[in-house]
Nucleic acid binder design. Structure first.
Lengths: 219, 219
DNA sequence: AATTTAACATACACATCTGTTTGTATAAAT
DNA sequence: ATTTATACAAACAGATGTGTATGTTAAATT
């Protein structure tokens, strides 16, 4: 029974939404199109009407998620005056908040992490890598600016600070996503960010009590 | 044609070895027992003789890898005199060396990372988690000792230092393993460790040139 | 030496998943 | 008011993978 254009788009979206849940629960390769169809309340016929196969569905799912506002950091770096490190830390913290609150992104990232990339979904891997590379480049620029303006502790270089932050965020999110999200991502993550950025900052030999208050150990 | 006991054990091992390679390349759920059999130079009959099914084979593969010497850190912590942080950093660096040089462990960990845990391989997940928890506990003890003996910078607590190190190592290895190992794990990792542990250490207000040489930025 | 049994290879039955084809009802076009 | 094309459901054919059953050979056992 033919539906109106809007209804068709609706079922298409419901299929993508169902695929997200099913792929997340069973893994992409373990999930069958029958599973997805059942979860979406349609038959495989509907899926094959809207998508050519499972790989295509996966790609469309991947494309459907509005990827993070990549220029958030970029714009904030331009701010000439104040401490760049604060902006980076805030951006990282905000990213954690969004991740903690956005189940869609959680599922998508988990699927991507667990996905064994066969040749046919190699474009996904490449796009993922491009996004990562851009983020890393932005971070390096930001840390370079921080260094130029004297905010970066001499112990760190822009590259090493970028990598430390990147790896820590990656390890944090991986553990949270892959091992059942059994801790408070935003809280623990921000706590870690606070410590790490504390070490990023330049601490003058004469201890300034006003700023060093941020570096007190937390019980 | 019946083989001798030693020969049978040999084929069993070759099956496990083949499973390691095949699971790594195609992912556990995409890999078929026919693939494994072909890679091992046997038929599925041999596999079903030695293992009850694919899940069982996977579990035996997981059990076959000699898991890391967990007490390495534990023993070194006991050393009463010198800087505990040096031991932890060295242990972490050694771990990276071993990982970089041990293709078995690389494949196993990659398989585990990419594996979508269905209910039947839940024991693997749990064991993995136990190992991780023990490692984290050891690290916390070590950092606690470092703190007690005055080596740990006031910016850090034993818990936060443990988490920062753990997450950084996790993110580092995840990126290396999941994205094609396209950088020098040991070199870049140790560089990062050097910076991080530099910030872990207590830097007195009066700058000691002898030790601060370690904290110069590296080109 | 005859028998048994371990260590597989081979063959088969069964289920499952996929891709395609056909059917069908309805919205849209004429 | 027909016709047509859309948006699916239902049915079908083919491939693939699994588990098991059976066959086979040589090592152990007696």
């Amino acid at each position: 029974m033919r539906r109106t254009k809007a209804e068709a788009e609706e079922t298409r979206n419901s299929i993508i939404s169902a695929a997200e849940r099913v792929f997340f629960e069973k893994g992409v390769s373990n999930a069958t199109l029958e599973d997805v169809a059942k979860a979406a309340g349609v038959t495989r016929g509907a899926i094959y009407w809207h998508f050519s196969n499972k790989t295509d569905l996966f790609l469309e799912l991947y494309n459907s998620v509005p990827m993070p506002q990549e220029d958030m950091i970029a714009r904030e770096i331009e701010e000439p005056g104040s401490d760049v490190l604060c902006y980076i830390e805030k951006a990282a913290g905000d990213w954690l908040d969004e991740m903690a609150g956005d189940e869609h992104r959680q599922r998508i990232l988990t699927i991507l992490l667990r996905c064994a990339y066969s040749e046919d979904l190699l474009p996904v891997l490449e796009r993922q890598q491009e996004v990562d590379d851009r983020h890393v480049a932005l971070l390096e620029n930001a840390f370079a600016k921080a260094r130029k303006e004297g905010y970066l502790n001499a112990n760190w270089t822009p590259q090493s600070a970028t990598k430390a932050l990147w790896w820590m965020m990656g390890g944090l999110c991986s553990e949270w996503l892959l091992f059942g999200r059994r801790f408070d991502l935003a809280a623990e993550g921000k706590e870690g960010l606070k410590r790490l950025f504390g070490s990023f900052r330049h601490i003058p030999a004469s201890i300034d009590m006003a700023t060093s208050a941020d570096f007190q150990p937390v019980a």
